[in-house]
Nucleic acid binder design. Structure first.
Lengths: 159, 159, 159, 159
DNA sequence: TTTT
DNA sequence: TTTT
């Protein structure tokens, strides 16, 4: 019965994370992550293929995402694949997401950097560069909080 | 730019693989794989949560899937996440699949088993229990062959 | 500074686990795990190459190992690489071990099996087939308990 | 029989890679990689624990290591665990190494960087940031070339 | 020392 | 739709 459901990604955020603070106190961050791979096609041309992944981070990870991740941030992420179904225009659709369990920020921390721009990685000493989902075992339970219910809306999907 | 896009699953096939032999000689196997995890909920009850994954195997892996995998087979699988878009009823939909790169069969090979049933794992000595995608680097290219195009049909989606 | 240190193995135990119950109440299980891969050499002959890994399981995982794992058991294991140094015959030596974090038992549970032998996988309904290290975040701390100190002996190494 | 032997690391090189060009034309790069993890101990103090890993890269990967990796470089690495035995001072010793199969360079490529120092990541456009071991399936065979034999010396160990 |  |  027991199985393994593991996803490992290294890529860059396509946008700033969207963070929602739910009623129960939990928070969720969602964003898209691009993983690119290069290969040489039959004609010898260099090609890049990019996949976009829908990422969901809960609680502690969401807080860290909110504080430290931005459009362009490069991260290592470990999580699990989940598929939700939802209704839209009377049609059942499916959304596959990666629910994160561990995250490591991979941007270099520029020493002596001055100024501030959209791509600036954390410079503060209090920035953790590694983080885990609060509840380890109940990775299943972690996915339980119903986003749409908590927000009393059903046209408000993460992806 | 370079990234990592890796999926690791251990689970059971929900059905026998569907295998198609394309015009160019390539073959594709598709099937659903269930990964189950157990946890104890707040009331102390044992719960099982199952995720279903759409798996795609190309060429050599497809051939092995056709020969040795069946409904119920337990496998270890490594691959990458890919999302395709397709039209259905005039609506764009998305299908997320795991394109396999490596596979290991985990069913015990019953010694001296007699008879034959749907769950019988391979007993023949020629059954490889480990296999890889034919083309290593072009994992990207491996995903290129367009299934619907190759079959001249567009209502014929794997999932 | 933050990094990733992850090992994923699927293999068979070479011997029954050795389990020690330390003074503080913690327990440790150690055993060797074989991972085999097959390949065809230049002469077209089928070759098998086996690697042996020193596995360490703490606390909850140790208890499960003690109860359910035996010589021959097939498992999926996730953990991290650690290297210890120790003195032997006045010489500093190094031992590299994999400290487990998650484990899934992969042996088929034979239905209706009668009798009992060394290879029998658990048939009891209370056998968990999936388990995690008790303390999630402190994977580092989990490795802290000093085995030799706890046992007041220094010639008593796990491997 | 078939198993899985996989190591995934994200860390920094402790020194420049040592590269050797063997007689047969193959090359090998060896270096140490540090993976650090932070955790809070019982007294609430922030602690960092670092593990050092012996990395071996063959052929194509060795060439890339030689060109682009330096002391301090941050990389993602995927490989397999191998243990060699060797004699030293009449004593059999064991060395556990990670033979790389895939590598991704994680250093930011500084735009407009001037000058050159030991930590400078590749700035050239021709620097691949992702690379694979040349021979995919024969990961086993890849490890075959005997370093000491090839160099006609036995006191010349990578680690 | 495992497994096939 | 799997597995226990």
């Amino acid at each position: 019965m027991a199985g393994v459901n593991k996803v490992i990604l290294v890529g860059n955020l396509g946008r700033d994370p969207e963070v929602r603070h739910l009623e129960g106190g939990a928070s969720v961050a969602t964003f898209s992550l691009a993983t690119s791979e290069s290969y040489t096609d039959r004609d010898g041309n260099r090609q890049t293929q990019t996949e976009w992944h829908n990422i969901v981070m809960w609680r502690g990870l969401a807080t860290i995402a909110e504080r430290y991740l931005k459009k362009g941030s490069k991260i290592y992420l470990e999580g699990k694949l989940t598929t939700r179904s939802y209704e839209k225009d009377g049609i059942t659709r499916y959304a596959t997401e990666v629910v994160a369990r561990d995250m490591v920020m991979l941007d270099n921390r520029p020493e002596g950097q001055v100024g501030n721009n959209a791509y600036a990685p954390p410079t503060a000493a209090d920035a953790p560069s590694q983080a885990q989902a609060a509840s380890p075992a109940p990775a299943a339970a972690a996915a339980t909080p119903d986003l749409s219910a908590a927000e009393g809306s059903n046209d408000d999907l993460p992806f």
